[in-house]
């Protein structure tokens, strides 16, 4: 009798342990999938929030830059132009007194330089040309300027239709990334030539930059981005995240390529018939 109740107790104990263990494991499995799902959702929300904040900061910065640039160009520039005109009129009216004439001529020269400087600053802060004429023309102009600085021939080709219309914010970010990359190339890669090619593939706008200077690989870019002190790459990375774009560096035997791609959210009519080649020289 005692043995049988002992066996019953042992068996019931084992059964209880098995039942408890199985129910705990079952609940763990059920919860694990839920927790994984929740974690993914939470991370997406966190990223979206971060992106929203970044967007707001960049937007505020852009607005501020636009305001400053506009004020510099329209107000300070106009005042200086008026002073310049008045001084010119006074100079015309003057007779004799060479010392004073020299002084006024010198002041006019200084004013002239100030007007140029203010125009350059205001254009640097807000790419007026881009806003006015669009990405294609702005990139073409950028290459013209680059060509002047390099003293060698550069080219810009585009297979994208000229009536390409992008959201302005997207356009500005894309252009600023291209400008920053070209500036970096000029500063660090010391190339003889830079070729730019704008393309639209699989609903993506792609800018292909080819050069024959000192090139870096994708790994180098990642390292510089996370360990470097410069603000340029960080700014590029921020802008890329805003436009959900990608950047690919490739080192070749001579020189290298950089590819910026950005998803197109609006209608684009790619010109499949012929590639528009815009001669720069």
């Amino acid at each position: 009798m005692e043995i049988s109740s002992e066996i019953i107790l042992v068996v019931s104990g084992i059964l209880f342990a098995v039942a408890l263990g199985m129910s705990v494991i079952q609940m763990f499995i059920l919860f694990r999938s839920k927790a994984t799902l929740m974690r993914i959702k939470f991370e997406i929300q966190l990223k979206n929030k971060e992106l929203e904040m970044m967007n707001a900061v960049v937007q505020a910065q852009e607005t501020e830059r636009t305001n400053i640039a506009r004020n510099l160009h329209d107000e300070v520039g106009a005042i200086l132009a008026m002073a310049q005109r008045n001084l010119s009129v006074s100079l015309d009216k003057m007779t004799g007194d060479d010392v004073l004439r020299d002084d006024i001529e010198f002041t006019l020269d200084v004013l002239d330089q100030s007007v140029d400087k203010i125009r350059a600053i205001s254009h640097g802060m807000l790419p007026h040309f881009l806003v006015k004429f669009g990405l294609l023309k702005a990139l073409q102009r950028l290459m013209e300027q680059t060509e002047k600085s390099l003293g060698n021939s550069c080219s810009f080709n585009s297979s994208v239709s000229e009536d390409l219309s992008l959201e302005q914010r997207q356009e500005i970010h894309f252009y600023c990334i291209a400008t920053e990359l070209i500036n970096n190339l000029m500063k660090h890669a010391r190339p003889q030539f830079i070729n730019l090619k704008l393309d639209a593939r699989e609903n993506h706008l792609i800018l292909h930059i080819q050069h024959d200077g000192v090139a870096i690989s994708q790994a180098d870019y990642e390292y510089l981005l996370h360990h470097g002190n410069g603000m340029g790459l960080e700014s590029i990375s921020h802008r890329l995240r805003i436009i959900t774009g990608e950047l690919q560096y490739q080192r070749q035997t001579k020189g290298g390529t950089i590819e910026i791609s950005m998803p197109l959210k609006m209608k684009i009519a790619p010109n499949n018939h012929e590639e528009i080649s815009i001669p720069l020289t």
Binding site: V24, M27, F28, L30, F31, K34, A35, M38, R39, K41, F42, Q45
Partner: peptide
């Protein structure tokens, strides 16, 4: 058991670590 299934079927957005913490406490 009831609260564990409550947590498993929870539809509100919560911080994952807090959800996991609650699960282990209930367990």
């Amino acid at each position: 058991v009831m609260v564990i299934f409550d947590l498993i079927n929870l539809e509100d957005d919560v911080i994952p670590n807090q959800l996991e913490g609650k699960f282990f406490i209930v367990m």
